[in-house]
Amino acid sequence: MSIDYIISILKPMLEGAQMTVLLFIIAIVVSIPLGFLLTLAVSSIIKPLSWLAQAYIYIMRGTPLLLQLLFICFGLPMIPGIGEYLVLDRFVAASLGFILNYAAYFAEIFRGGLLAIDKGQYEASQVLGLNKWQMTTRIIMPQMFRIALPAVANESVTLVKDTALLYAVAVPELLHFAETAVNRDFTIVPFVVAGIIYLVMTLVLTIVFKWIEKRFRFE
């Protein structure tokens, strides 16, 4: 076991990690706003919209992410008639799967945040003359995001680890390179290295979220 060996496997694994980070960023940047829109849809007074959003969340949370990824990557192209137009680049397909799945989880997290806001906040806003839009954007949303922050942080850490599912749809990411090295060199060192890389990524993420939480503690 030499340092040279670790350095030699580190290069492809870090390239794989780039894929992981890229997927993470795409998924988080798109699914958080999408999740918020879903929350609004669920709490909408337009009943069909609310039902639709609830059904969506139920399906996305009620089936494995892996199944959803396989469905988008391999299932969609098999649909008769339109399948041929649904052949997506693997990475694009996987990103789509992660976004759609995580949006449902974020929607539930934000809904929890909304429920935690005291009704006195709405009443005070109303009596002070704020309109619906002002109340939502200036009073309710900032508090909702603050309350949801720890749960969002937790979900983000899960997302980092879930990126390993890219392996199943054959997008070369961190775990893929680790496994290749393990099979080729007959040593578990690459798995250990992969684990450490994941730990570093989640550590950075944890620190970032802790900082955000502190920044918005309102004390």
Binding site: G120, Q121, E123, A124, V127, P142, Q143
Partner: peptide, 15 residues
């Protein structure tokens, strides 16, 4: 809007 109200539980905006 001609009236102001003060609540039992203050209802200040915590953020």
């Amino acid at each position: 809007s001609k009236m102001g109200m003060v609540f039992q539980h203050f209802n200040l905006f915590p953020h």
